[in-house]
């Protein structure tokens, strides 16, 4: 099965590979995996706490070309969006953008899961960090 040009482009020139400081309170980390193909995907976002805008996103994926392309594209889509906008990203956008064939749709689902996991982690952190008075108010 041939990969689409866009998948190949992301695979050969992945955007935003790397990692952010996991302990930074403005960084959310999502780690997800797809055991059936052995993929594991780590996606991180850095959020501006004032505006809620995602200023940076990084990923590191071990898996097939489509999984790498899906997470690479996901980091591009995330940058500049607010956290709430980012929650609206659907795997179908990734499928369409990369022209993924049906057997590779699970890769885009994994990327969506990773986005959600990263945001959940970020939100949990900001909740923890909030002063007790703000939480009870």
């Amino acid at each position: 099965m041939a990969y689409s040009d866009k998948v190949l482009d992301h695979y050969n020139h992945p955007r935003n590979v790397g990692s952010l400081d996991k302990k930074d309170p403005s960084v959310g980390t999502g780690l997800v995996g797809a055991p059936e193909c052995g993929d594991v995907m780590k996606l991180q976002i850095k959020v501006n706490p004032e505006t809620g805008v995602i200023e940076d996103a990084r990923f590191k994926t071990f898996g097939c070309g489509s999984a790498i392309a899906s997470s690479s594209l996901a980091t591009e889509m995330l940058k500049g969006r607010t956290v709430d906008e980012a929650l609206q990203i659907k795997n179908t956008e990734i499928v369409n953008e990369l022209s993924l064939p049906p057997v590779k749709i699970h890769c885009s689902v994994l990327a969506e899961d990773a986005i959600k996991a990263a945001i959940t982690d970020y939100k949990a952190k900001t909740l923890d960090a909030a002063p007790a008075s703000a939480q009870s108010a």
Binding site: V32, G33, P35, V40, L110
Partner: peptide, 17 residues
């Protein structure tokens, strides 16, 4: 063969990564 990541415990994913 059909499985989603939610079936995998997070500590395991960490170790796999």
């Amino acid at each position: 063969g059909e499985q989603r990541s939610k079936d995998v415990p997070p500590e395991l994913l960490e170790e796999v990564f």
